[in-house]
Design a protein around this nucleic acid. Sequence first.
DNA 1: TTTCCTTGCTAACGAACGTTAGGCTTAGTA
DNA 2: TACTAAGCCTAACGTTCGTTAGCAAGGAAA
Lengths: 196, 196
Amino acid sequence: METALLSRKDQIDQTATALFRTRGFAATSMRELASALGMEAGSIYSHIRSKEELLHRICFRLADEFFAGFDEATADDALPAAPRLRRAVESHVRVLTTDSAASAVFLHEWRHLSEPARTEFLALREQYEAGFRKLIAQGAAAGELYAPDPAFAALTLLASLNWLPNWYRPGGSLSTADIAHRLANQLLFGLEVRGN
Amino acid sequence: METALLSRKDQIDQTATALFRTRGFAATSMRELASALGMEAGSIYSHIRSKEELLHRICFRLADEFFAGFDEATADDALPAAPRLRRAVESHVRVLTTDSAASAVFLHEWRHLSEPARTEFLALREQYEAGFRKLIAQGAAAGELYAPDPAFAALTLLASLNWLPNWYRPGGSLSTADIAHRLANQLLFGLEVRGN
DNA sequence: TTTCCTTGCTAACGAACGTTAGGCTTAGTA
DNA sequence: TACTAAGCCTAACGTTCGTTAGCAAGGAAA
């Protein structure tokens, strides 16, 4: 029972994540998933209740990670908005890179959740984005950031970050921290007030 | 035969585009598509050869539009790289907004193309992105742009733009030209050399 | 040793899938 | 008037889908 590094259930989650990422949720069959795990399709149901449960777990676990990272990164109220935003960006990138397959599923496959999970998911997503909007708006109000339209800026910022799982490959020359720092630099440079 | 504004085949393309966008290609059945068109599933095959042909047409038509827009926007060799890049960005945004459903399909559903179409598609995509990379690199070499890593900058730039179909809705307060101009401003501001 | 829980198997279920064949209706053309 | 072609129908094909039932092997716990 306490044998492997990964429990069988975790192996299933992980393999499902990889398949959902490359093939898409709808185009991945339980038989494909079973085959990748070296077992039969029916056997998977000793571990899970349904195919959608797999997707549900992936999406909401990632949501948790994004929130936890954001909260930790922005916890210090004494800090100005700009560095807090920078830390939030770095946290976001860290989640994207350390769990890039799950992130890709999180970003692309959530629409295959059925109600009410889908609505719940979208609410979380909106709440998360609102965190960035608020930070940018604070920074703009304090004159730390140049962002005439905080909502627009937040959208663009997250868009750039969320493209990362599309090209990032774990074996690359840049470390996760490098990428995070670099992306934050490039994006915030355009936002920060000139002469800073 | 010359009756409608849209031929029946074009109506099918258009409805398929909308469904592929919201439901995804794999999760959209021919019976769903037929029902949305007010006909039966089998009848569609009087107009098309296969479901994948629909996806193929959408993806490659959009590729044509992106290329045509880019070529026109950057045709003037006498212009410096920075304004040519700006025009390319505006062209990209124009395609994304005037055909946002098809763009979303183009961006998300291409992986359901089977070989060799899939490889062909990816080659086109790479070629298109190379155009942006080259423009940014030229601008950086000439000192017009601040981009220590042109590939990185191109990736980030297109990422921000390609997120557009996720939030843009045709009835919004901003015109297509407004959005194009605004996005180009926001993105290039971070790229352009300070004091310009 | 007995009991149980985990893990997996085989076989099958009903449903939905993409696609095809063949026929009917209608409108335009000769 | 006869012919043709488009457009759509119904019915069905073979396949694959997610999922379930029932059973067997193996190790842990009693």
